[in-house]
Amino acid sequence: MPAAVEGVLRQYLAERAAQADGVSGRFAEEVAELVARFALGGGKRLRPRFLWCGWRAGGPGAAEERAVLRVGAALELLQVCALVHDDLMDAAPLRRAKPSVHVEFAARHRARGLRGAAEEFGAGAALLTGDLALVWAEDLWHEAGLKAAARRRAGALWRAMRTEMVAGQYLDLHGQAAGDFDPPQALRIAHLKAGLYTVQRPLGLGAAIAEDGRVRQPELRRAGRRAGVAFQLRDDLLDVFGDGSATGKPTGADVRQGKPTYLMAVALQQARAGRRRTAERVLTRALGDRALGESGLERVRAVLVELGARAVVEQHIADLAAEALAAVDAAGLTESAARELTGLIRSVACPPAVTWAPGGARG
């Protein structure tokens, strides 16, 4: 299925690049081509895979398959927009082990000796690149070829998902600026920023397109919500304790940016409740320190383990994954559809296999 979505993406992006070339050769070569390269240059295709599982759960018809694949491709273009803008807001240098879009544009500016500040040019060009991906995602949604009834059912979810995605990003940005490390709010952001957008809404979109009355939609939504939040909490753990060569991003980026993750919110709550002043100082000094080195990050890791914050998050991920799998069992899916969805949830929502001990051993 991921390969099929990639085939749809490749064809669609070639068509749009040709149209862009008719507008401006430079625009086509430098912006449209970059959207295509980003969309086709990696990623797990999680959103199309959950869309597919939702569609399979709802008793699909073979005639709809092409339309569902095109909706999956639209989700991937929406993800391109989200990642390009996210990297810009976070000043992230890397994405998938390559320079982020704003960094690449800034490098082009310097290489060509253009006027003005390279960083400002890179930021503006990245903003437009993400906007183009968003425009093309919306175009592809409308051109997917869904039947009228299916499009009406799924349309409300598509609209809600785009607004929720932006809301989650804004709350994340605001929480970072305000230094708001409240565990319930951190979970709310995880739900909006990733849970809904990555799992629950794509799963619901697929089910809405198929609409089989035998499937119990509340249970399917519950499975998507629990798995989605677990996915984001897992990502937060990997950011601190994972291997940057595997994630394609610098380890500790959330700490250096001062992001109000659930992991950090729990750690600060535990430190303050236990009057662990030294541990609290280690965390508060590290959060938002863009120059934080590996030794400083090692101290943060040690404190997160000593306070029990990592264990709390790992247990919460395990509980959410178990609830998601129980909801799938109760959703009334066919055996094959349930098996496919269960496997996908296990791959994204179970606690990560990461080991760490003082001294830097990670795996």
Rank of each mutant, 00 (worst) to 15 (best):
A3Q: 08
R10Q: 13
D21E: 15
G22R: 12
F38L: 07
K44T: 14
R45M: 07
L46N: 10
L51A: 10
L51F: 00
A57G: 14
V68Y: 11
V80N: 01
H85V: 10
L88D: 14
A91I: 03
L94S: 05
P99H: 10
V103L: 11
A107H: 09
G113N: 14
A117T: 04
A118I: 05
F121V: 11
A126D: 10
L128R: 14
A133W: 13
L134I: 13
A144T: 10
K147G: 15
A156K: 13
L157E: 06
R162V: 15
T163P: 02
G168P: 00
H174L: 15
Q185P: 03
I189W: 00
A190C: 01
H191W: 11
H191G: 13
A194Y: 02
E211H: 14
G213A: 14
R225D: 06
D235L: 12
L238H: 05
L238G: 11
D243M: 13
S245N: 13
T247W: 00
A253L: 15
V255W: 00
G258W: 00
T261A: 11
A265H: 02
V266D: 00
L268Q: 01
Q269M: 06
Q270S: 08
Q270G: 00
R277G: 09
T278L: 07
A279I: 08
L283H: 01
A291L: 02
A291M: 03
G293C: 12
G296W: 02
V300P: 03
G308C: 12
E314S: 10
Q315E: 15
E323H: 11
A331T: 09
G332F: 07
G332T: 13
S336H: 10
A349R: 03
A349H: 03
P352H: 02
